[in-house]
Amino acid sequence: MSAASQQHPISMKFAAFGLVLFWLMLAGGPFLWTVWGSFKVQGDFFSKSDWTNAIYGIRTTIETGGPFTGQGYSGAWIEQEFWRATLNTFIVVLCTVTISLTFGTLGGYALARSGRR
């Protein structure tokens, strides 16, 4: 499928690869860091004294006995009732998308098909 006309020089490919890798680090890095930190306690991830605590989980080990903990997730999902917020969001998304898609499609079809200006 790749005709000779579509081939790029190797240097261009490397440059593109490098740029995309850099961008992916910028885009995904913060989320990776946050997911890693979600298994630590507040004293580690939001440590005011040393940010590397979040990597090794020093206070997590002191407070929960191991470098990883599910405390954050149980605290959010059960204690703060995040499941309720998720359910509410799901209901809102379902209704909004259904209604606005329906109305929008009808209106869009009418506008596209009409010869009006």
Binding site: H8, M12, K13, A15, A16, F17, L19, V20, W23, L24, A27, G28, F31
Partner: peptide, 28 residues
């Protein structure tokens, strides 16, 4: 535009994951 051009040049297998990770800042 620049990132779209760069991703367009990637090998086919890696395009999918690249697009997914690129979209994260907007999705969240």
């Amino acid at each position: 535009l620049v990132i779209a051009l760069a991703v367009n040049m990637l090998p086919r297998m890696t395009k999918g994951p690249a697009i997914f990770v690129s979209l994260l800042p907007m999705i969240v």
